[in-house]
Simulated scan of single mutants.
Amino acid sequence: MSAPRPVPAVLAVILRGEEVLLVRRANPPDAGLWGFPGGKIELGETLGAAAEREAREETGVRCRAGAAFAALDAFHREDGALRAHYVMVAVTCAWLEGEPLAADDALEAAWAPIAGLAVRTDTSADVESVAHAARAFG
Results as ranks from 00 to 15, higher is better:
residue 63 C to H: 03
residue 20 V to E: 03
residue 24 R to M: 06
residue 102 A to S: 00
residue 55 A to P: 01
residue 98 G to W: 03
residue 19 E to L: 00
residue 25 R to V: 01
residue 41 I to Q: 04
residue 102 A to F: 01
residue 136 A to C: 05
residue 66 G to W: 07
residue 73 D to A: 12
residue 71 A to M: 13
residue 99 E to L: 00
residue 76 H to R: 07
residue 7 V to L: 15
residue 53 R to M: 08
residue 49 A to I: 04
residue 28 P to G: 12
residue 66 G to L: 13
residue 98 G to N: 01
residue 113 P to A: 15
residue 63 C to S: 09
residue 9 A to M: 10
residue 44 G to Y: 11
residue 63 C to K: 03
residue 26 A to R: 15
residue 22 L to I: 01
residue 58 E to W: 00
residue 43 L to V: 12
residue 31 A to F: 06
residue 42 E to N: 10
residue 64 R to M: 08
residue 121 T to R: 15
residue 46 T to P: 06
residue 84 A to V: 06
residue 85 H to E: 06
residue 90 A to W: 00
residue 54 E to R: 15
residue 100 P to M: 01
residue 115 A to I: 03
residue 54 E to H: 15
residue 102 A to C: 01
residue 94 A to S: 12
residue 9 A to Y: 05
residue 61 V to Y: 03
residue 86 Y to H: 13
residue 59 T to V: 01
residue 126 D to R: 14
residue 16 R to N: 03
residue 69 F to E: 07
residue 114 I to V: 14
residue 15 L to S: 02
residue 115 A to V: 04
residue 72 L to V: 09
residue 26 A to D: 14
residue 103 A to V: 02
residue 8 P to W: 04
residue 40 K to A: 14
residue 129 S to I: 08
residue 63 C to E: 05
residue 50 A to I: 05
residue 100 P to I: 00
residue 97 E to D: 05
residue 51 A to I: 10
residue 85 H to T: 08
residue 138 G to S: 14
residue 54 E to N: 12
residue 93 C to M: 04
residue 63 C to R: 03
residue 27 N to S: 14
residue 13 V to Y: 02
residue 18 E to P: 05
residue 100 P to G: 02
residue 70 A to G: 11
residue 7 V to E: 15
residue 34 W to I: 03
residue 95 W to C: 03
residue 34 W to L: 12
residue 104 D to M: 07
